[in-house]
Simulated assay, not measured.
Amino acid sequence: MKLVSYIHQGKNTYGVLLPDGGIVDLASRIGHEYPTLLELVRKNGYAAAQQVLNNAKSGDVRESDIRYLPLFLEPVTIHCVGLNYAAHAAEAGHKLPEFPRTFVKIPAALVAHNEDFDKPTLSPEFDFEGEIAVVISQTARKVKAEDAAKYIAGYTCFMDGSVRDYQFQRTLDQGKNFYRSSSIGPALVTPDEVGVLDHLTLTTIVSGETMQHTAFDNMIFTIPKLIEYISDFTELHAGDVIATGTPEGVGFSRTPPRFLQKGDVVEVIIDKIGTLCNKVS
């Protein structure tokens, strides 16, 4: 299933995105028990959602008639991983990390699919990073990598917007948390629909030009290893997000650098998961 949160006719709701662009509204059918997508994840309501989907003859609304929300209405913790591809570490001038490098992104930094980024006014160095993100299904503490699959609610696309001079000259958290500089979505795609990640690919396109392309078997630290590492030092909760890092091809490493400008359109495309698209305004 591809689960989406959205606004339709002024109302926040959620449902299942169909291949034809229709959306089956779940809140109107099972909202008494699972009022939001996050509650569906927390209460392991996938079977109830699948039953609704099986009984639906078509979508209730069209994708063209809704405005996406960034997965969840409620705040969740967003853990981001840096330098998780060898070629990206090399282009950034770093040696291969011995352990995952993480930071936290705040909700105010995120917009949904088809929403505009706010181009920073304090810096000209607004950069793109396409990533796959994994969403946690239940409370997780000291999870072993071999058990990590039981804690995965699904996957989504992520654009880790980075303001490079603030990141490099001030602090990582500042450079990674400019207002409306990153995005997530459009859908939370359940693991059964995605299958094995290793040979699936990620592509980042900026205004029609392919900037990044890689397969996920190029990750230094796999998703199970990231869940193990992060759950060792903190407790993860249902709905928490781990953005797993970006491959080579980011803007600051190019000659000349390719930073995002007003009017640029950024697409993060992941096999079996979807396309996250945002314009810089």
Rank of each mutant, 00 (worst) to 15 (best):
T222I: 09
I223E: 00
H199K: 15
L172V: 15
G185C: 02
H213N: 13
D165T: 06
G195N: 03
V241R: 02
R180V: 09
T201W: 08
T201M: 12
V196G: 14
F221C: 01
T210K: 14
Q167D: 08
F216R: 01
E228G: 04
V194L: 07
I220D: 05
T222P: 12
D217V: 05
Q167M: 11
S231K: 00
V194K: 02
L197P: 05
M211K: 13
S182V: 07
H237T: 09
G239N: 07
D165L: 01
H199N: 15
I227M: 05
I220L: 12
K225G: 07
T214W: 01
P191G: 11
D232W: 09
V194R: 02
I184P: 05
T201R: 13
F178I: 00
Q174A: 10
D173P: 10
D192F: 13
K176H: 06
D173F: 06
I205Y: 07
A187K: 00
K225I: 04
S231V: 03
T214R: 05
F233Y: 14
L202P: 03
L200Y: 05
V189M: 02
Q167H: 13
S181E: 08
A238C: 14
Q167C: 08
I230V: 11
S183R: 01
Y179P: 06
T210P: 12
E193Y: 13
R170V: 15
L188M: 05
T210G: 14
L188R: 00
H237Y: 10
Y229G: 08
T171M: 08
G239T: 07
A215G: 14
G239K: 05
D192R: 13
T171S: 14
F216Y: 10
H199V: 14
T203P: 05
G195C: 04
V196R: 14
L188K: 01
I227N: 02
L202Y: 00
G185P: 03
A215Q: 15
R170Y: 15
L197V: 03
V241M: 08
N177S: 02
K176D: 11
I230P: 04
K176A: 07
E193G: 12
H199A: 15
T222S: 15
G208M: 04
H213S: 13
E193L: 14
L236T: 07
I184S: 02
R180G: 10
